[in-house]
């Protein structure tokens, strides 16, 4: 069980760390860093599904007969690109939040909004 499943478990542990960072930190940049770790962990989970013992990269060549499965690779290529797109948009929002509130901290910004609402 351990030898055949440790790959999955490591990915799960990394995923937990990423999820914890996203949920616990109120700093917006740190949240996005956590989101990245979380997503990479999911990518590892997927890629491990395609691996086959004694296989090689799925580039057909007369010298090989056993290849790892290409489909998870294709899916994760897509997911990586989706990830960077999300991060870029998130960071643009962080920059604008910093300009509008003078902070990159979600809680501080919420408090600022609440104060503003009380004043009016």
């Amino acid at each position: 069980m351990i030898a055949s499943h440790y790959n999955y478990w490591i990915a799960v542990v990394l995923l937990m760390i990423g999820l914890y960072v996203v949920m616990s930190h109120s700093n917006t940049i740190k949240k996005l860093i956590g989101l990245n770790v979380f997503q990479v962990a999911v990518f590892m989970l997927y890629i491990s599904l395609g691996k086959i013992e004694g296989g090689t990269a799925p580039i057909v060549d007369a010298a090989f007969t056993v290849y790892s499965h290409p489909l998870p690779h294709v899916l994760i290529l897509t997911a990586i690109v989706v990830g960077v797109a999300t991060t870029a948009l998130g960071l643009a929002l962080v920059v604008r939040i910093h300009e509008a509130y003078g902070t990159t901290d979600e809680d501080e910004a919420l408090i600022a909004d609440r104060r503003e609402a009380e004043r009016t």
């Binding site: 999820l19 996203v22 917006t28 949240k31 996005l32 989101l35 979380f38 997503q39 999911v42 997911a79 989706v82 999300t86 948009l89 998130g90 929002l93 962080v94 604008r96 939040i97 509008a100 509130y101 979600e106 910004a109 919420l110 909004d113």
Partner: peptide, 22 residues
Amino acid sequence: RQALLAAFRYLVMGTLGGTFVL
């Protein structure tokens, strides 16, 4: 400016949701 914060919070929650689906 609240829109920026709302969009960011939606982005984090939405990405978590999307990744859960994944």
